[in-house]
């Protein structure tokens, strides 16, 4: 008489519980997501974004550059103001423009951080890359096509904050899908690999 197949307990469950307990914005377990082409039974398992510290670095650099630009405008206004060459309205307009440019660049960085994501669902892996205002790529692969998942911490910041890059090797034409600077890379790797194993067993 055939016995029922017993699956060993997946370590991904504890990894998901661990991540859920941390309640991170850039690593969300079972998020509510609706997207084009999502099947009825498909459920989002894990939403992964780059660690926000890298977005903060960009914000800080934009702030510093804005301050430098404002100081430059003020110095130029003082020098040219003594010569009465340029009207004061132009300096005021330049100040406003510099602040507006900084605001819009900050928003661009926020959007780039927000929409650069990895989404693991019960059926597939979705990688969204937003590289500019208009350049956006959507790579999606079925979990059964995933061959290998690599978690690679590189650099001092990765060691300090427990971050890493994740590379996913697929059987498709596009060889690798990657996301950089992810928190708890080994746990994410574990979850993804367990889901792949589970999916391959069921098919």
């Amino acid at each position: 008489m055939p016995t029922a197949r017993k699956f060993p307990k997946m370590s991904a469950v504890s990894a998901l519980k661990f991540i859920k307990k941390k309640n991170l914005f850039h690593l969300q377990v079972f998020p509510t997501i609706n997207m084009d082409g999502m099947d009825q039974n498909e459920k989002a398992v894990l939403l992964i974004r780059t660690h926000p510290i890298f977005f903060m670095f960009k914000l800080i650099s934009i702030t510093v550059l804005t301050l430098v630009a404002l100081i430059t405008v003020a110095i130029v206004a003082k020098i040219l103001g003594q010569l009465n060459v340029v009207s004061p309205q132009i300096y005021s307009a330049s100040f406003i423009l510099v602040i507006l440019i900084a605001l819009n660049l900050s928003l661009l960085e926020l959007i780039k951080w927000f929409y650069n994501l990895f989404l693991i669902t019960s059926e597939r892996l979705l990688d969204i890359d937003l590289t500019g205002i208009v350049n956006m790529s959507w790579s999606s692969t079925h979990l059964t096509n995933i061959e290998d998942v690599e978690a690679r911490p590189t650099g001092v910041l990765h060691v300090l904050l427990n971050l890493g890059n994740i590379y996913v090797q697929t059987a498709a034409a596009q060889a690798k899908i990657e996301i950089n600077n992810v928190k708890y890379p080994t746990k994410v790797q574990d979850i993804l690999l367990d889901l792949v194993t589970l999916k391959k067993r069921h098919t």
């Binding site: 997501i33 819009n104 929409y115 208009v134 956006m136």
Partner: peptide, 22 residues
Amino acid sequence: VLGFSGLLFLKIKRTRNQIKLP
């Protein structure tokens, strides 16, 4: 700057139509 800001706004709106994230 006006064009850039408008484009960013449109980009978010279009992307939200494709995928709704938390």
